[in-house]
């Protein structure tokens, strides 16, 4: 669905290379996450994939077409939601969606159905100027889905959303995957990436430093042990046990039987730990 080989880019008039030879591919039906700090090059990579920046070096094919050679009909097949929702504030949600819907010639979804899916049906005739950030973000997702795209590019899709709406959006993205669509997400939100992405790529200074499934990364970079927390004499105690031979570890088995266990966790790494370990930098 997406093939990127040795992608290099520098902005016109700039001497500095922003992307230094990215290589990755995204098969159909995958949710792929680009993670990295601000200025790492993830937005630039996304702009290249959606055909805004065409003066790149290397090979970038989306839906079997080299992106630099695509024509406006390319946008019949892809959906894009930028980080900052961009609408006509004087138009209602329905008027905005109807306007953008009218730009497509292929099959499109009904705006009222999309608004209903994101909980905005009752605000269909409210001017977007009166929308909160969360409502605009959900409307942004509706617009990206209008043309029933094969591939969806989402920039910080859960930014500015409360937990309930963040969950709603994540569920919609997973539904897209279930329907065989491909989704590329750009985010600094590790939790969102972990919750929905099949694979993630950490991008730092224009290079991919790690690429794998969140689970695999967490297991590979974690400690192979469990942490047990229990309460004794009103004090919380912690013990660590190696995963190897855990079932036959008498000390562990006796502890489970003897004490009042409060938590029991494996010690896989968090994505943030992995990122810091791999890059020496923190996500902002």
């Amino acid at each position: 669905m997406v093939e990127v080989r040795n992608l290099r880019y520098k902005y016109p008039g700039s001497k500095d290379q922003v992307l230094h030879g990215l290589d990755f591919s995204i098969p159909q039906g995958e949710i792929f996450g680009f993670l990295g700090p601000s200025g790492a090059g993830k937005s630039t990579a996304q702009k290249i994939l959606i055909g805004i920046l065409k003066q790149y070096e290397g090979k970038v094919t989306v839906l079997g077409r080299e992106v630099r050679e695509t024509k406006p009909d390319y946008y019949e097949k892809i959906g894009v939601a930028f980080e900052f929702p961009n609408f006509y504030g004087r138009f209602t949600a329905m008027e905005n969606l109807s306007l953008f819907r009218s730009l497509y010639q292929g099959t499109t979804s009904k705006p009222e159905e999309l608004l209903d899916r994101v909980g905005l049906a009752k605000y269909a005739h409210t001017k977007v100027d009166n929308f909160s950030k969360s409502m605009k973000m959900r409307l942004n997702l509706c617009r990206a889905l209008l043309n029933q795209p094969e591939i969806l590019f989402l920039d910080e899709p859960t930014s500015g959303l409360d937990p309930v709406n963040a969950r709603l959006v994540k569920e919609m993205i997973i539904q897209m995957k279930t329907a065989g669509k491909t989704v590329l997400i750009t985010t600094h939100n590790m939790q969102a990436a972990e919750d929905i992405c099949d694979r993630i790529a950490f991008i730092v200074d224009g290079r991919i430093v790690l690429i794998d499934s969140p689970r695999q990364l967490k297991v590979e970079h974690g400690k192979r042990r469990v942490r047990v927390e229990y309460r004794k004499n009103e004090q919380i105690h912690q013990e660590y046990y190696e995963l190897e031979g855990l079932g036959t570890n008498q000390e562990f088995v006796q502890l489970l039987g003897r004490e009042r266990i409060e938590t029991l966790h494996t010690e896989e790494a968090t994505l943030e730990d992995i990122f810091i370990k791999a890059t020496g930098r923190k996500l902002e």
Binding site: I52, P72, Y75, F82, N86, F87, Y88
Partner: peptide, 17 residues
């Protein structure tokens, strides 16, 4: 100002259109 031109650029209308 509202980044709408940026959005039109990724629709079949295109920036040129």
């Amino acid at each position: 100002d509202e980044y709408l031109i940026q959005y039109y650029a990724v629709t079949p209308l295109s920036r040129r259109g």
